[in-house]
């Protein structure tokens, strides 16, 4: 049980993030959920790359065990992508607030349906 600890945390974050994205109607809360979902991926990559007692990958005679650096590099990229997604999402939320005067998904949908109905008639 304990040896799978990091995986349990990963799965919990993944499910929790996905649940928030789907269940919450507030645009900001959805983005929070999305960030949690993406965080679970960071853990998925990072945790298996770490060895207990392992050091940074440096060539030195006194060091023999080191952690795999590749996952760290990959996740550094993924974090940048996550930040960019979050920034763009928040910027869109601001613009939506200006245009619709609300950031609740159901109210936005209602306004959209009203606009669709006007065009259709």
């Amino acid at each position: 049980m304990l040896e799978h600890f990091s995986h349990i945390v990963t799965v919990f974050l993944l499910v929790a993030g996905l649940f928030i994205v789907i269940a919450r109607g507030n645009l900001i809360k959805k983005l929070v959920g999305l960030s949690i979902l993406q965080t679970s991926v960071y853990l998925l990559y990072i945790a298996p790359g770490k060895l207990l007692g392992g050091t940074a990958p440096i060539l030195a005679p006194q060091l023999s065990v080191y952690s795999n650096p590749l996952p760290h590099v990959l996740i550094l990229t993924a974090i940048v992508v996550g930040v960019a997604t979050l920034a763009l999402g928040l910027a869109l939320a601001v613009r939506i607030r200006e245009a619709y005067d609300t950031i609740e998904e159901d109210e936005i949908l209602a306004l959209d349906h009203a606009a669709d109905a006007r065009e259709g008639s």
Binding site: K30, L34, L37, V41, T85, G89, L92, I96, I108, A115
Partner: peptide, 22 residues
């Protein structure tokens, strides 16, 4: 203004898709 809502919705669904892929 519906373009903003559409872009936001695509951002959420697209990011979930990309996260699944990764």
């Amino acid at each position: 203004r519906r373009a903003l809502a559409a872009a936001y919705r695509y951002l959420i669904m697209g990011s979930i898709g990309a996260t699944f892929i990764v």
